[in-house]
C-alpha cells in the first residue's frame, strides 16, 4: 500500500505507480530502450584512420613457405593415404591467383591426359536417329519428352553427371522449362559451354575425361589425379592443367590482370604441399621458371607478384 497522503483516496489510486502483478527477475529491456539501441550509430569522426577496403584477395609472402618437389609431396601424400582406396582417393590441386575481387573470373572446361573421373553418366536430349546414336555411344539415357518429365518429377535428384543437348532438340529443352532445376546443378546444356552439340555420339566420346573448373575467391581448386597414378602421370596432368589456366589468364588480358602465385598439391585426407615446380627433389638446377627439362611450369610473373605483395 502507498504511504499515507493528504490527498483524497481517489487521487491516491490514480497517482500511485502501477504495481505489477508479478516481479520477474530478468525482464527483457523495455521497448523504448530497444528502439534507442537500434538507431543508427553516429559516424566516426573523419580524422580517425580507417583501413582502406581491399580490392584484391589477400596475398601472403611466399618466403615463409616451405616448397616441395612433386616427388617429395607425392611420397608424403601416399604415406598419409596409406591403405585407402586407390581410385576414390584423389590428388587435389589448388592454384592461388593474384586477382581483383570484382574482376572477371576463370571458368572453363579442360581435358587432362589421364582422366581423373572415370565414372561419367551422360544423358542426351535428342530425338530420332540422333537418339539411337547417343544410346549406342554409351549414353545412360536419351530422349526428349520423357527426359523432361523425369527431370520435373525427380525434383533435381538426377543420376546423371552430364546432360548434352542435340542442336535440333535444344529449343524443345528451352520450352520445357527445366532450367530452374538443371541450372543450379550445373547440368543445363548451353552453347556457351559446348554442351549443345551437333553430333551427340562424338560429344560423349570427347566428354570422357573432360571436366570444368572455376576460380572461387581467387583460388582454382580441382582434383588432378587418382591415388593410383604414378608421378609421371600426375606431372603430365598438372602440366596440362597449368597450361589451360595460363591460356585462360592470357584470354583475360586487357580486361583484368591475373597471376599465378602459389600451387598447392593436396589429397583427400592429406595436408597441402606448396609445389616448387621441380619434379625430382635431387634436381635443384630445375628452376621454377623453366617450362622444360623435367620441371612443371607453375610460374606466371612470379617476381612481379612478390613485388606487389611487399607493397
Amino acid at each position: 500500500m502507498p504511504p499515507k497522503s493528504p490527498l483524497p483516496s481517489a487521487s491516491i489510486l490514480l497517482l500511485a505507480p502501477l504495481r505489477p502483478c508479478y516481479t520477474p527477475q530478468n525482464l527483457p529491456l523495455p521497448l523504448h530502450f530497444r528502439s534507442y539501441a537500434s538507431t543508427p550509430q553516429k559516424k566516426s569522426p573523419t580524422n580517425v584512420k580507417r583501413r582502406p577496403q581491399r580490392t584484391s584477395f589477400r596475398q601472403y609472402d611466399l618466403k615463409d613457405a616451405t616448397q616441395f618437389s612433386l616427388n617429395e609431396a607425392v611420397r608424403y601424400l601416399r604415406a598419409f593415404e596409406v591403405g585407402q582406396d586407390p581410385v576414390s582417393t584423389k590428388y587435389e590441386l589448388a592454384i592461388k591467383l593474384h586477382a581483383m575481387k570484382n574482376g572477371p573470373t576463370i571458368k572453363t572446361v579442360v581435358k587432362l591426359p589421364k582422366p581423373v573421373k572415370t565414372d561419367i553418366r551422360v544423358c542426351v536430349i535428342a530425338d530420332g536417329p540422333a537418339r539411337e546414336a547417343a544410346l549406342k555411344a554409351g549414353a545412360m539415357a536419351a530422349g526428349t519428352e520423357e527426359i523432361f518429365e523425369q527431370i520435373k518429377t525427380s525434383g533435381g535428384n538426377l543420376p546423371y553427371t552430364h546432360i548434352l543437348a542435340h542442336e535440333p532438340s535444344y529449343n524443345l529443352l528451352l520450352k520445357a522449362r527445366v532450367a530452374p532445376i538443371l541450372g543450379p546443378r550445373g547440368l543445363m546444356p548451353s552453347p556457351k559451354f559446348g554442351t549443345v552439340v551437333t553430333n551427340p555420339a562424338n560429344a560423349i566420346k570427347e566428354l570422357t575425361g573432360k571436366f570444368d573448373y572455376r576460380e572461387r575467391l581467387g583460388v582454382i581448386r580441382t582434383a588432378i589425379g587418382q591415388l593410383a597414378f604414378t608421378e609421371e602421370e600426375l606431372a603430365k596432368n598438372i602440366s596440362a592443367f597449368m597450361g589451360s589456366v595460363k591460356k585462360e589468364i592470357a584470354m583475360l588480358q586487357g580486361r583484368t590482370e591475373k597471376e599465378i602465385v602459389e600451387v598447392v598439391l593436396s589429397s583427400t585426407r592429406g595436408p597441402g604441399f606448396s609445389l616448387s615446380g621441380a619434379v625430382k627433389p635431387e634436381a635443384p638446377e630445375v628452376k621454377k621458371d623453366s617450362g622444360s627439362g623435367g620441371g612443371i611450369d607453375l610460374s606466371a610473373k612470379i617476381g612481379e607478384v612478390k613485388r606487389r605483395v611487399s607493397v
Partner: peptide, 19 residues
Amino acid sequence: MVSIIQRMKVLQGKLATLR
C-alpha cells in the same frame, strides 16, 4: 587460402610426426 605461416606450422608438425 589459410595464411602461409599457420599452414606451414601445422604441416611441419605433421611431417615431423610422420618421420
